[in-house]
Computed example of a mutant assay.
Amino acid sequence: PSPYAYLDQYQEEPETAPTTIGGYQTLKKTYSYNPVPDDADELVKKHIIGVQGNIWNEYMQSDERRDYQAFPRAVALAETGWTQNNRKNWNSFRSRMVEDFERMDAMNVKACRNFFDVNINTHVYDGTLKAVLETFYPDAEIRYTTDGSAPTAKSELYTQPFTWEGYIDLQAAAFKNSKMLGKVNGKKLYANLISGKQYTTTPHWGWMSGDIFGENDILGADTTTLGLTNGKRGNIASFTPWVAFSLNEKNNNELVFSVDLEKPATISKVIFGTLYNPAFRVLPASAARVEVSTNGKEFKEVAQTSYTREYPEHGRKMFTDVLEFTPTEARYIKVTLKSGGTLRNGIDCRKDSPGDIIPSDLYVDEIEVY
């Protein structure tokens, strides 16, 4: 099952983890897997005889890399295979994992150590976007800073999700008895006028809908924290944070992003990010336009520009673009992004569809308004 048991996928922040095939499933998410769904037909339940952890080796050049990908999630799958779902308990499991790591260390198993670190996320609570920190190590303290400095045992203690203002460089680590357990994890967060707000897009987003909250969520299941306004920008390590759009002649090769500020505000800048990855049929926006309205009906254009891109010879690149304009009052905002153009099928990308020239997709993250 893809959301839980592919151990070749990322299990910690892709920006800092060893490169692998993609996806994202932590130890906690793997442990939450129920191979015998409660609502399954009783006859079906009788014929489910086991579980499988899938681990493809394309990105694993050594025994240490295979250890890192398989463990500790293989332990979670083993317990899942031998334990009825109603008897599984995450808190009990993570308490026992402390000794399991000692056992793996003694056996020279080079397991992923995210268990000792802090995972940084964002989530909308009652309409407000907040930063959420979590460590899997039982009864550990989370200490954090917002200025990019490394946290110590005397740094701010995390007790609950919190709001922030503007741009922060959030750094966090887990501590036990004033001793740091793992490494420091960081994430840059961007608060702006549309942080956490619902929005609409034309066309609707495709197979990637942006980052998710909650270890047990299947990708895209979170309906409150949407990928384009979750306070985090995309990266070139993983597709998970990005929102994917298929653009073609039917939608005028354009993406239209619309958002309601809920009350008038003075705005003067829009920032957005798009991705270059031609092998995956993705090109960045070639042009952008910003329109505003006070009533949601009549819109006026306040900014428009086109882009001449410099692409790397190999690999991916993320572009972050800024449109600045004379301060203007607005409640409703439209941001229109133009397709990056076409690709030579079988030359710029793998040819698995007909046609010599094909339209590129657009991957977007984040859209910010100031």
Rank of each mutant, 00 (worst) to 15 (best):
E313H: 12
N114F: 10
N85F: 11
P14D: 03
K351Y: 00
S149W: 09
K297P: 02
S306E: 15
G220K: 11
F239L: 13
N252C: 05
I49N: 12
R87E: 15
T128S: 09
E368L: 14
D217Q: 14
P284Y: 09
D356W: 01
V44L: 14
I21Y: 04
I271Q: 09
A174F: 10
V259G: 05
V282N: 10
I357E: 13
N54R: 09
A153C: 02
D67A: 08
V364A: 11
L226C: 02
R316F: 04
W56C: 06
L189N: 04
Y307K: 10
A191R: 15
S149P: 10
K183Y: 03
D100F: 03
A40R: 03
H314C: 03
P151Q: 02
V290M: 08
A111Q: 03
R233L: 06
S95P: 00
R344T: 11
Q61E: 10
P284K: 13
I358M: 00
E291F: 04
L129I: 07
A191E: 13
T163F: 01
T152L: 03
N230I: 06
K297V: 14
Q52E: 15
F299N: 13
D169E: 12
L77F: 07
G22H: 06
T145Q: 03
T223M: 13
L43M: 05
I49Q: 05
T305K: 13
L133T: 06
K183I: 07
P203H: 07
R103E: 08
T135R: 11
L7D: 01
T294F: 02
I333D: 11
D117R: 11
F162K: 07
E141V: 05
M180D: 00
Y31V: 09
E156T: 15
R289Y: 03
F162G: 12
G220R: 09
M104I: 09
P14S: 08
S95G: 05
E249P: 01
D356G: 10
N54C: 08
A70K: 04
F115M: 11
I212P: 00
S155L: 12
